[in-house]
């Protein structure tokens, strides 16, 4: 949680705590479903556009309470590296995604963990079914998201994907998780 626990941005923006809880949950869920669909359908530009400039996209290894600034993670991208990752996918020569993985993911157990100012921290479980040349792989993760309300819509600030089996050898993870 180290990276996610960093201070919330102090932006003079709408106070989400004032939003009706059911409405807020609905709005959060809709955003997570959108993000999931863009990833599943390899809509690279659409997915990249969800991120804020201070983004962190993180898949820990060897547990889910490691320090990504000191220990190895499967993936620990800032906004710049997210951009490189997307540009590589778009070359058409990212061999592990040529042909692309066929994906369908289910997001559930969406809980709003914390609301502060214009940001919200969300927990959700996700199952991702991947089919590719190697075969079929089922991925399971406990995700944590930090979303920020910007110009009337949510943007993605941080996404931590804690794969339940991240202490064991895992197959290539080259789609947008």
């Amino acid at each position: 949680m180290t990276a996610l626990a960093q201070s919330f941005a102090d932006v003079s923006a709408p106070d989400l705590a004032a939003t009706d809880a059911v409405a807020l949950h609905h709005q959060v869920a809709q955003f997570l479903y959108l993000e999931a669909r863009l990833a599943d359908t390899h809509d690279y530009d659409g997915w990249e556009a969800l991120w804020t400039d201070d983004a962190i996209y993180w898949v820990p290894a060897n547990g889910d309470d490691t320090d990504p600034e000191k220990e190895m993670s499967v993936l620990y991208d800032n906004r710049s590296r997210i951009g490189v990752r997307i540009r590589q996918l778009k070359t058409g020569r990212r061999h592990t995604q040529t042909p692309r993985s066929e994906l369908a993911r289910v997001i559930s157990n969406i809980e709003i963990a914390e609301v502060r100012g214009n940001e919200v921290e969300v927990r959700a479980n996700v199952l991702i079914y991947e089919d590719n040349l190697r075969g079929d792989t089922l991925w399971a993760a406990r995700n944590t998201y930090r979303l920020r309300m910007v110009d009337g819509g949510f943007r993605l600030v941080r996404k931590k994907i804690a794969l339940v089996n991240n202490n064991k050898p895992i197959f290539t993870l080259s789609f947008l998780v």
Binding site: M72, S73, L75, Q88, I170, T172, L173, S174
Partner: peptide
Amino acid sequence: MGSVGPAGLLLADDT
């Protein structure tokens, strides 16, 4: 972290 391992920009293609 950027280049190797299951999500690496290099090693995912080697693999």
